[in-house]
Structure formats: structure tokens, C-alpha cells
Write a protein that binds this DNA or RNA. Structure first.
Lengths: 340, 340
DNA sequence: CTGAAAGCGCTTACAG
DNA sequence: CTGAAAGCGCTTACAG
């Protein structure tokens, strides 16, 4: 038995397909009599509209694309959840793409999304130097950048948190505790969030006349293992830092594992803080001082902005960036005696 | 400027749309001369095929639906990641639905997916008693259950881990350590994984002549806050348990927070273990003993099974369930003196 | 090897 | 209020 179509419903109800379509979309101007007959026919046949056919006709798929670089990162997971909630509330479905920090995979996904005629795209690009992405941004499907943006994309709004103030507060906190040997496990310079956190860290230190030597700046790739390696290298230094800042939660996890493995005590022997806050930071001994992003708000705001752009058919400026917040817990303590 | 279509390409290349279509799908039997002209025209026009139109025609969207109950749960996140990887490798996109443990939302999602003509559905249902889902399972789009299944769904395969052996090992471990007052923070009985873990726990205890009183069985909903509440109630008992098992990672997080707040030391004052393993369990003091599921394997296997069903156009039996594994760390210790 | 034509399942001016 | 007809952008027998 073939899946029933409007035609079948029309025949069953004794009306035209136009009338069926009208009652389906709740349009005014169908006699009560016919409306009821159509509804009954739909019921009898178990008719379910074909959204693909509808999309082809109305040129809208009610589908959004979300391409992020790492679904396993709790930050993105939270964001994705908020995006999905907001999208669902507005009647949009979400196609998810995991670019895995790989520009080539990212481009592939974008292409598929475009072919599938998504109404809009939420994108957290793998790197900010991405000339090949400029084309899609300047295309006719609305794009909003999430957490990260690309160079020269004047057209598309970006929704992200501003972490600079919080990083500054963190550095101040560390300096007040007596630390002078500050190190950072940074994200890649090629990603705006990586760059911003590094620069904020260096600026905050510089403003307070603290120079951070190159060997105290380790670059990771925002993934766990790179945080692990970076911390190991820092610990192996002739003169290791007394305080370390990891630029995202995954690298913090790796760094903490390295600390654990090396048997280095926090905060007695080393102070530690992380960008991104996760629920389990509060359970560690000591609990980890961290910079919390307004994750859910970012996702919700990005999604509703995109949907607005789709509706209004024009680009809007992104909202003012929300501020990340420093949450002081116990993982940063006074520098140990005789170290400064 | 209108988005170019096959028609435009055909005109530009001086061939028919049929020929354009043939070179697009890489079909044999197009003269080299025309093939080159078509390719050049595509390039010049910046033509991008419309997948919606194609889908309508070929009756396949190369899209899978994944509806899970909680994207914020690291277990599902890992699974989703593996699903997405596998789907992408096979050229399928993934529409994500977060049912939020709500059967109504779940049904809504399923309906949307069906309307959008997905080629197959991966489903982790909110509850196993779900007669309304039987219709979709028996419909013509292939469904595979992931981690959870529903009652009476003989048709669709289910891919999940079998946790019974590992739960048994855990109970044995606890009893060897001298524990007799064992408690469980269980998931809902309405969900197969919740029921299975509870039954395995009770059976394992019963087989060793340990009775678990009702007050040692607290039901949560697999979310953080329910684990928190459950643990508080257990601690408030006149005679609290000496060992507690949380039936998933989110409830374990909540339970650990309650323990932390109450200042109860693990394992000196209470032993603790969790179903599901997460990376940060290893960082806690003491590290948490847990039951690890083959998460990535579950996702990959479910996705490839579904794709196989789509291709072969028939239902297969699910694979033998994979075994979950007990990972003993430091959070279960000898029962304290004078307690048995 | 190639093209004209039909058709996938909808929606929407248009005419009445 | 209603229906006949065109058309969204593809693909695929069919005939040559």
C-alpha cells in the first residue's frame, strides 16, 4: 500500500488537492463542511504530509545547520542543547555537523547543508583564517557565528562571550596571591577564542609588569591530550611556573591528569585555573577556580538571532558580547615560600 | 541573480538536463566532450545541486534522525558523536532531536522526522511502555533502538550494552569489602536500562543472601538533581547504607555533590560507585569506581546497522549486546568497624 | 550517446 | 468558497 498523498486525501474527501492543502496549512476560506471532510479523510488514510515536497515548493526547509568543531566538548554540548531547544520551540529542526577542528571536514559539511537547503547556519569555525568560508557567508543563506568567527566576515553576526575581563580578574587574583611565574596552556592562535584568551592573559600580566617568558606559553589544540602534554612540559621546566591557566575545559582535564600523575599538589605546589566551568570542577579537591561562560544564553541567543534573520530576510548585527565570569574556588592559593 | 539550476547548466553547456544529471551522478555513457562542457558550465555558474529536489525524486534524503532523551548526558553525547561520525562516513546527515525524557516531545520529534522523510531513525525512547511508538516502528522507515527499547517492538533491533554482569561484579566487590547495607539510586523502572540495573543489583545481592530494604532503593530520573536528592535522603536515614550505587553518571554527579555538602568522606564513611564512566571520575579523591559502557562502539554499531537496514531494505536482528565493564578505583573501601 | 517528457508531492496565483 | 493547472528542481524510463 502506497503512502497516501494529497491526491488520495482529495479523492477520499471529494474535493480538490488545493482544498486539502488549504486545510492542512490552516488557511482561511474553506467551508466548514469541506474542512471536516478533509480532516476525516486525513484521519482515515493516516495521511502525513511530505515535508520534502513542501520544501521544494515553498523554498524553505524549516531546518537549521549547526556545525561545531567538537561535540564531545561540554561547552559545545551545552551550546548545542540550547540551540536545539530554541530551534525546536520555533519549529525548526537541526542538522548537526561535527567538524572535528578540521577545516576540510567543515567545508564538506557546509556544502552538504547548502545542498540540503537549510534555512540558516550556525557555525563555529575551526580557524579564523578561512577565506573559503567567505563565499558561504556572503551567499544567500543566513549565517551566524557561534563562539568563534572568521577574519573579514563583516556580513555575519557573531555570538560569543567576552572573556577578557574575566581573564584579567584571574591574573589579578593570582598576582595578589603572590604569583609571578604565570603560565598559560593556550588554544591555537588561529582560533579567535584561543587568541583572545592568550592576549588577555599576556596583557593582564604586562599591565602589572609581569613578563611571561615563551617557555611559559604552551600551545594546545583545545583537546584533552594537548593539555596533558603541555602540563607535562611545564612541570619539566628547570624553573616551573607557580600558577597555570588552561584556556578551555578539555585541556584543563588533561592538565589535571598530568598533575595527578606527577603527584603535584594543588594549590600547595601549583595554582591552577581553567577557562570554561564544568559541574565536576566543584567536586575536585580543591575545587577548581574557573571562568564561566553564559553557555546556554549563547546558544539560545545565536539560534533566535538566526531565526530572526531568516524571518526578516536581512542581516542584523550580533548582540553585545556577554561577559564571562571568574568563579573563584580553591585551586589558586598563595605562592609557596621562597619561590618568588 | 537566481540560484542556477540544472536547466541553466544545460543551456550553458548546450546539452539537455538529462545529460547534466547524468554527469552529476557520475553515470556511464556520456561522451567525454559533453561531460567536459557540463563540468565547465557547472564551474562557471557556481551551480550547486538542490538536494531537496533530488530527494523528492529519488525518494531518499540521505538523512538519519537521532532522537535521544538528554544531549547533556555525556553518555549520549559520546554516543551521538560516534553516530555522527559513522553517518558522515557513509554520506548521511543527522537531524538531532532532544526529547528531554518527555514522551510527548519525543512523539513530536518522531513525527517531524517522518514528515521530513528521513531514511532511518535511531531512537532512545523516554520510556519502554510506549504503545504510540509501535506504529512508527512498524512503519516503513527503519528504526533501531539505542541503549533503550520499548515493550513489544519485535521488529526493530536494539543496540545496547548489557550491564548485568558488571553490576554483579560490583556487588560482589562491595560484599567482599564487608558491606551489607547496600543502597541504590536507581533510574526509573519505566526505562529498560533503569530496570535492568536495579534488577541486576537486587539479584546480585539476593544471590548472596543480602536483602535490600525499600528505604535503600531510591528512584531518580537519571538527572543530576534527582541523584542529589536521593543521596540526601539516604544520608538522613536512621541507619544509612555503607555503600551506594548510582545508576548513571548524572545522578552520580548529584550524589557526589550531596556527599560533598554533607562532608561525608569516601570511602572511609561511605563507599560509592556509579554506572557509566566519565573521564573526571579518575581525578576525584578518591577516584570513583564505575561501570564503563562501550559508548563509542554502541553509537557506531547502531548507525552502521541502521544504514545496512536502509540499504538492504530489510530488518536485521541487533548484534549481541556488548558487555559493560567494572572499573575498580578507590571509592569503595572496607566497611568501617562496628557497622555490620 | 542523447533528449523530450513525465512525474516525485506539494502550494499558489488565477479564474470563476 | 473552490478547482484546474502550473511549477518548485531534480531523475529516469523511453525512444531514437
Amino acid at each position: 500500500m502506497r503512502t497516501p498523498t494529497v491526491k488520495d486525501v482529495a479523492r477520499e474527501a471529494g474535493v480538490s488537492t488545493a482544498t486539502v492543502s488549504r486545510v492542512l496549512s490552516g488557511k482561511e476560506g474553506v467551508s466548514e463542511d469541506k474542512r471536516l471532510r478533509v480532516l476525516a479523510a486525513i484521519e482515515r488514510l493516516g495521511y502525513r504530509p511530505n515535508a520534502v515536497a513542501r520544501s521544494l515548493r515553498v523554498e524553505s526547509t524549516r531546518t537549521l545547520g549547526l556545525v561545531i568543531s567538537n561535540v564531545t566538548n561540554p561547552f559545545f554540548t551545552e551550546v548545542a542543547r540550547a540551540v536545539e531547544d530554541e530551534a525546536a520551540r520555533e519549529g525548526y529542526s537541526l542538522i548537526l555537523g561535527n567538524a572535528d577542528e578540521d577545516p576540510a571536514k567543515e567545508e564538506l559539511y557546509l556544502n552538504v547543508l547548502l545542498q540540503k537547503q537549510v534555512d540558516g547556519i550556525l557555525l563555529s569555525p575551526a580557524r579564523s583564517d578561512a577565506p573559503h568560508l567567505l563565499k558561504v557567508v556572503e551567499g544567500k543563506v543566513p549565517v551566524v557565528f557561534l563562539d568563534r568567527s572568521i577574519d573579514g566576515a563583516a556580513g555575519a553576526p557573531v555570538v560569543r562571550a567576552d572573556g577578557r575581563g574575566a581573564v584579567d580578574s584571574l591574573v589579578e587574583h593570582l598576582i595578589e596571591l603572590g604569583h609571578r611565574r604565570l603560565a598559560i596552556i593556550s588554544g591555537p592562535r588561529e582560533i579567535i577564542s584561543g587568541r583572545e584568551r592568550l592576549e588577555a592573559f599576556l596583557n593582564a600580566a604586562g599591565r602589572r609588569n609581569i613578563r611571561i617568558p615563551d617557555e611559559y606559553i604552551k600551545f594546545g589544540n583545545f583537546r584533552r591530550s594537548s593539555g596533558f602534554e603541555a602540563m607535562r612540559k611545564l612541570l619539566a621546566l628547570a624553573e616551573p611556573p607557580t600558577a597555570v591557566f588552561a584556556a578551555n575545559n578539555l585541556m584543563a582535564l588533561g592538565a589535571l591528569q598530568a598533575l595527578e600523575e606527577a603527584g603535584v599538589r594543588i594549590p600547595q605546589e601549583i595554582s591552577f585555573a581553567s577557562f570554561d566551568d564544568v559541574p565536576w570542577f566543584g567536586l575536585l579537591k580543591p575545587p577548581i577556580t574557573a571562568i564561566a561562560q553564559p553557555t546556554r544564553a549563547l546558544g539560545a541567543s545565536a539560534a533566535s538571532l538566526l531565526i530572526e534573520m531568516i524571518r526578516e530576510c536581512r542581516s542584523t548585527k550580533g548582540p553585545e558580547p556577554m561577559e564571562a565570569q571568574l568563579v573563584i574556588r580553591g585551586s589558586c592559593g598563595p605562592v609557596r615560600e621562597g619561590v618568588r
